[in-house]
Amino acid sequence: MFGWLRRDPKKKLETQYAQKLEAARDAQRNGNIQGFAALTSEAEKILNEIDRLAEAGENDAR
């Protein structure tokens, strides 16, 4: 009944993922390759968490 009040952790992670990718892009364009690599690694960790939440959601729906 009050499902619309529940916060969506997946949406928050997707926003963080997009921000990390943009920051990584900017670092690469500025020539900061080490920063690019670090930010890309962090973005991949967030993507793995998104995938994990999606799999958990699929299992709950069954």
Rank of each mutant, 00 (worst) to 15 (best):
F36N: 10
T15Y: 10
G57R: 01
N30M: 07
E14D: 05
Q28K: 05
N32A: 03
Q28T: 06
K12I: 14
A27K: 03
A24K: 10
E55F: 05
N48E: 15
A43F: 02
A56P: 07
L47S: 09
T15I: 13
D8V: 02
G31A: 08
N48Q: 10
N32Q: 03
N32D: 15
A38Y: 14
G57F: 00
A24E: 15
K11G: 14
I33R: 08
E42W: 08
L47H: 12
K11W: 00
A24N: 03
A37D: 15
R52A: 15
A38G: 04
D26W: 00
N59P: 10
G35N: 10
E58F: 07
E42D: 10
K12C: 01
N48R: 09
R29M: 11
A37L: 14
E55M: 12
Q28R: 08
N30R: 14
K20D: 14
R25C: 04
N59R: 12
E44L: 06
A38S: 10
A56F: 05
D51V: 05
R29T: 00
K10W: 07
E42I: 02
D60S: 14
Q28G: 07
E55K: 00
W4L: 04
D8Q: 13
A23F: 15
G57Q: 09
A43E: 07
G31N: 09
L21S: 05
G3V: 04
D26K: 05
L39C: 15
G35V: 04
A61D: 15
D51R: 01
P9A: 01
D51F: 01
Q34I: 09
K11D: 09
E14K: 01
L13Q: 06
N48A: 11
F2M: 07
L47F: 08
A43T: 08
L53F: 06
E42R: 02
A54I: 05
L47A: 11
Q16P: 06
P9D: 14
K11N: 01
G35I: 04
G31F: 05
N59M: 10
A27D: 15
L21T: 12
Q19H: 00
I50V: 14
N30F: 06
D8P: 02
A23Q: 12
R25S: 08
R6N: 01
N59E: 13
L47Q: 13
K45S: 11
E44R: 03
T40R: 12
L21W: 03
R29D: 14
G57I: 08
R25D: 05
A23G: 11
D51P: 14
A43Y: 04
K12E: 12
A18F: 01
P9H: 03
